[in-house]
Nucleic acid binder design. Structure first.
Lengths: 331, 331
DNA sequence: AGCCTAGCTTGAAACGATTCACGATCTTTG
DNA sequence: CAAAGATCGTGAATCGTTTCAAGCTAGGCT
């Protein structure tokens, strides 16, 4: 049978389409009896609102787009849940897109979301220039930048990764004088910030330049962590404290060290970053820096919803959440 | 400025709206010069198609919904990528929803997708009854069931987990006579199938009933794996071969064993399931059962697209992909 | 010249909801 | 009893696109 429209429901219930719409959207304007009759008709016919028509007429949508690099990192799940929870609370739905770290895919995501007429976008930009952002804003979309410093004229919410890198290395320097920092490509802001904070903390603690080694890996996976362990063990003198830019790296590194017979933390101490579940369940429970992931997602959504709500004058805010050290056994 | 519509573009280019629409959808019907003029106008005004209007008029959408339990399991990423790649190839876009294992949330996801008028749904059902599925199909949606056995009248694609459990345990029984099986709640089909296959293989290999222990954990996380290790070590006599229903469990279990000083695989051999990246990078590289994840996602999308394309007579297919054993060092 | 055809373009009718000014009834009140 | 509310319903206009029958032009053919 052909799709059921509001008109069919009206006919069945013996009322006008306007009344059906009222039952759907302002039920208090409709007399009890009529309301029930319409509801019955809806049930019998299996009517489902056509969101396209609704949105077309209303001009706006109750949908927010979220563009992230990947859903793969377990760190991401909490963020997603936090964001979705906040949106649902405010009657919004989320459209998830992944850029896979490619500027081209990111563009396609944004095009898609614009065509869908989402009322706002939460995004972790990869190849996004100020121009495109301005474009989005001009079209009336609220934009929230996630985990990057504020751009001009948009809200942003991030974690203070400089501080994160600092507390990690502060913890190491209390017992170690020769450090290594294992990181991914120094491109994305969260990574460069962690690195910067780590280096600054090491200097401040008086670690000698020649005793501060940086190992840049191709990505932030456990496989890269193992590779980093190999490179680490070639250093002379051997560093005794290692900071890894995320937990997956740290886990790979620790595992590789253990395979080689190097004791953690006795011979080498390791601090990770993220506090994913695996950090607590690895062979040597990992000392790491925890990010308030759920809160990050929740707040991002709140910002987006708030801005989508206000018609004009909106005060853009750049928020930064603080990470915290979780001490376990690896350092 | 107010949103730019096709009408504004038409005015600017000095043509009718019909022509603009043709440039957008059937450019070959439009004369070269006109086409360029319209394209220029589109660029100058920054016109973006309103997908709602398009969809409303066309009746159908080029969008498929995907409902999965969670995006958290790293196993899931490949599947998502495979599905999205296949859809994009066919000019479809994906709408991702997570049910978080709750029947209520699953219902809300489906409601959302129906209101969006997606042309099909790929779903890993959690609380879905045949009635609701029939409803979806009656409304003209193509339905593909993912990782569950075929329902009546829908396509399905899954991995043969019974076979997966078998090859895992076959590998163990070649050297072990006392086995333990660690699993999550015996509710979801992929888990019960693995269990069933594992038990069948053990029996077939002549493992005595009293030497086949099942440890049912609350979930499939590494934390539960550690818990399982504790329970395992209380058994007497100690099993020497363990099959875990997924890699996260196995990793937690192995790590807990190592912490306690039990040697893997010398004292206890462990086989996991999934072959996530961490399987290869744990302290003792994990022997595990690999699922063709990318292919699973890709094929699911292909099925959905195919069915969405055909108007009427569609032959429903129930596909099952074969898992394979990846032998590393843990068993 | 008259007629055809091919190639472009037009304009109006949908699609399915929301909105809002306006009727129709019924109650209340002076 | 008439006027004034109060309470419910109605129906047409509208959102931005696609679609399609019909119109127009230019050129070729007889």
């Amino acid at each position: 049978m052909p799709p059921v429209s509001i008109r069919d429901v009206a006919m069945r219930a013996g009322v006008s389409v306007g009344t059906v719409s009222n039952v759907l959207n302002r039920p208090n304007l409709v007399a009890e009896a009529t309301r029930e009759r319409v509801r019955a008709a809806i049930g019998e016919l299996g009517f489902v609102r056509n969101e396209s028509a609704r949105q077309l007429r209303q001009g706006r949508s109750r949908t927010l787009g979220v563009v992230v690099e990947s859903l793969g990192n377990p760190y991401f799940t909490d963020l997603a849940r936090g964001a979705e929870a906040a949106m649902n609370t405010d009657g919004f739905d989320a459209l998830w897109c992944t850029s896979d770290g490619s500027a081209a895919k990111e563009r396609r995501c944004l095009d898609f979301l614009e065509e869908q007429r989402v009322s706002g976008v939460i995004i972790t930009p990869v190849g996004l220039d100020a121009g495109r952002i301005a474009e989005l804003r001009d079209r009336g979309l609220s934009v929230v930048v996630l985990d990057r410093r504020a751009y001009d004229g948009v809200c942003s919410i991030r974690v203070d990764h400089v501080a994160g890198g600092e507390i990690a290395v502060d913890h190491l320097t209390s017992r170690h004088r020769r450090l290594a920092i294992v990181t991914g490509p120094l491109v994305a802001e969260p990574i460069t910030d962690r690195y910067e904070g780590a280096v600054a903390a090491a200097r401040r603690a008086g670690v000698a330049e020649e005793h501060l080694t940086t190992l840049v890996q191709g990505d932030l996976t456990p496989t890269s962590g193992m590779e980093a362990a190999r490179r680490l063990l070639e250093l002379d003198p051997l560093p005794t404290g290692v900071f890894c830019a995320n937990d997956l790296l740290a886990i790979g590194l620790v595992n590789a060290l253990l395979r080689t017979g190097v004791k953690v933390p006795e011979e080498i101490s390791v601090v990770g970053y993220d506090d994913i579940e695996l950090a607590g369940t690895s062979v040597v429970p990992l000392t790491t820096v925890r990010q308030p992931r759920h809160e990050l997602g929740w707040t991002a959504a709140e910002l987006a919803v708030a801005e989508a709500g206000t018609a004009e004058g909106h005060e853009h805010r750049g928020l930064a959440l603080s990470p915290s050290l979780v001490v376990r056994e690896s350092a």
